[in-house]
Design a protein around this nucleic acid. Sequence first.
DNA 1: GTGAAAATTAATGCATACGCAAAAAAATGC
DNA 2: GCATTTTTTTGCGTATGCATTAATTTTCAC
Lengths: 217, 217
Amino acid sequence: MSNTQRAISELRRLVFSGELPAGSDHLESELAERLGMSRTPIREAARTLESQGLLELRARKGVRILPVSLEDMREIYDVLTELESLAAERAAEQHYTGAELGELASAITDMKAALEVKDLEAWADADDRFHVELVRLGGNSRVASITAMMSDQVRRARAVTLFMRPLPVQSNEDHQGVYEAIAKADPKRAHDLHHAHRQRARDMILDLLERHRLRQL
Amino acid sequence: MSNTQRAISELRRLVFSGELPAGSDHLESELAERLGMSRTPIREAARTLESQGLLELRARKGVRILPVSLEDMREIYDVLTELESLAAERAAEQHYTGAELGELASAITDMKAALEVKDLEAWADADDRFHVELVRLGGNSRVASITAMMSDQVRRARAVTLFMRPLPVQSNEDHQGVYEAIAKADPKRAHDLHHAHRQRARDMILDLLERHRLRQL
DNA sequence: GTGAAAATTAATGCATACGCAAAAAAATGC
DNA sequence: GCATTTTTTTGCGTATGCATTAATTTTCAC
């Protein structure tokens, strides 16, 4: 694995874990030393992550970890809503067999189990798996990579809202409905159910952040 | 302007003009010499363009200009359909004044004029302006940059299909309808009209390419 | 003491050099 | 003549150094 690759995944990890907090600036040379390599692979990695919307390269100021504003969240959830709903619709058009929907079903099972023991981290992980698998089943690689990018951008926010929100009971019912619509090969229903699901989640989270005056993450 | 910036716009131009044809490979050192700079800014530019889906960096093979397959076109038009329809919907929610919709109206006027004198290049330019302005009015910067990226990826294909397709009379009517729905602040109608418009264009182009056995561009 | 101008510092942008791994070419054995 | 091994070549990945330029500090005039 190349140093540039390592720099990409390492920097991602540092951003997601909060070791490089939103809004902070870091010199290329600092990061290079921190990751034990020269500036070159750091610069290449930074350019990649910049185009993925995680950070920004500013001349003489180093790389800035991009904060996510309320407005950003609105934009991102809107994109996620549309593209994932498209994926659900397309998935339902494929007439997948039960076996092919196994991963989706297992993600739902895990969410239910996590919810019963109130393990929110485990629930969030399974929720992630559900959404990743859904867009995979949708069969559009561009939808998959765009939604992955958008999810990355709000990953920090989720860590905050996860413990502020009510137990995601409604979410679980939504997922079940989307799954059944896909299994029954009902594209319109799959689309509309997922659309409503994402819209609800969006409104709930934006409302939550607004009420807690968290305008930046 | 930095050499990296120049490399980005120059490489884009070379790709769009066909001077670097789809599927061709080019050594970093060749491109560096061609653009009169060292490999470093070429590599940085290539990484940026890679994340925009225009080319691919392959070890020891240089950069490969990515061809666009029929399947790619399907994916791209699907994404464009959903995100632009969202933009139309959101634009209609803003209650824009006539003045604020001026650029959109002017794009439509230009398309009509171009159509009457059968100037397809001028029509395509105005059509571009319409779609760019539409997503701008939608107010979601991520939708704007994603649709711009997707449009870039099919730009080569459009040059081919433009002169194969029937005169875009239907398209012009569609645009008019979307414009009116936005002016009348009817989000659902704006969404549905634009969705149908894009879907029609998609089916027409895919059909055209398939009948002409153009499976790669 | 204040403001402008000059000097200094510092970090990027880029050119360049080199090692290494992979591909191509050549040599060798059968 | 073909396959296999060895040699050579080639091009990328990365480190390094320097020039450029923006930011900062210092100096100096008023």
